[in-house]
Simulated scan of single mutants.
Amino acid sequence: MSTDYPSVGVASGLPRHSFPLRVLHWLIAVLLAFSLIGGFTLGTLGHERIVELVGTDIANIAYMAHKTLGITILGLMVLRLVVRLLQGTPPYAVELSGFQRFMSRLVHFLLYVMVIAIPIVGSLATAAAGFPVNFFTWELPAMIAENPALAEQLFQAHMILGLCIIAVLVLHIGAGLRHKRRGDWVMHRISLGR
């Protein structure tokens, strides 16, 4: 495999994702980071402990914000999937090994599936627990009837999905940093800069 990478002077001519898809990538990344941090904080401390620490009003705002983030991420991920399917994927500026291509496809596939699935599972768990599914202050219709036993299983699945997303993100970010360090322009495909 060649290590003769394109020079800085040709960076603007290298293949890249469209600007809208690059913006969606980084916007979703930021929102997902906040959602994961907030979700694990809420899940670890639990409602009663959160209320003890910050009071009922702030606790309710925290849960509403987490639900709103989830629904927003779901909408943006569906939009991103549509844009990507319509536009396709640009080629790499350098040749990647078969293993690198396989891992890239696997990690991206897993991220798409899990990041779309986690807010759906969270919304189902919330409805099954008898809590409102909020988007900001709007209460959305419950997708399933109240069922405490099912809610417990769904909340557990929601937490496991969050842990799996973090594990796959570690691989994704690690690979991105490796490409950045190598200077092989793979990160250029998704970067916001020129």
Rank of each mutant, 00 (worst) to 15 (best):
S2C: 09
V23W: 05
F135I: 09
V10P: 03
R80W: 04
R105Q: 06
P141I: 09
L150I: 07
L76F: 11
L53S: 09
H179T: 13
L169W: 00
E95S: 05
E146L: 14
T44F: 15
E52A: 14
S7L: 14
L150W: 07
R80L: 01
V23A: 11
L76T: 11
V133P: 05
I116C: 08
G98N: 10
M187K: 10
L169P: 00
T126R: 00
R178L: 15
M103Y: 08
N60P: 03
A117I: 05
R178D: 05
V10T: 15
G98D: 02
L111P: 00
I118T: 10
L14I: 07
S123Y: 03
G174I: 14
T72V: 08
A65T: 12
D184A: 15
P15Q: 02
I71V: 12
N60E: 04
L24C: 15
V54K: 14
P148F: 04
R178N: 13
L161D: 01
R189C: 06
F109R: 07
R101F: 12
G193H: 07
L42M: 11
I144L: 13
W138P: 00
L169Q: 08
I116D: 00
M187C: 09
V51M: 10
L14H: 03
Y63E: 05
L24I: 10
H17R: 13
Y5D: 01
L81T: 09
A142Q: 03
L124F: 02
G176T: 05
F19V: 05
R178V: 15
F131R: 13
E152F: 04
T68Q: 07
H179S: 11
V168D: 02
L150M: 12
I37S: 13
F19G: 09
I50S: 02
L85N: 03
G162P: 00
M114D: 01
V168C: 07
M103G: 07
A142H: 05
Y63V: 15
E139V: 12
I118F: 14
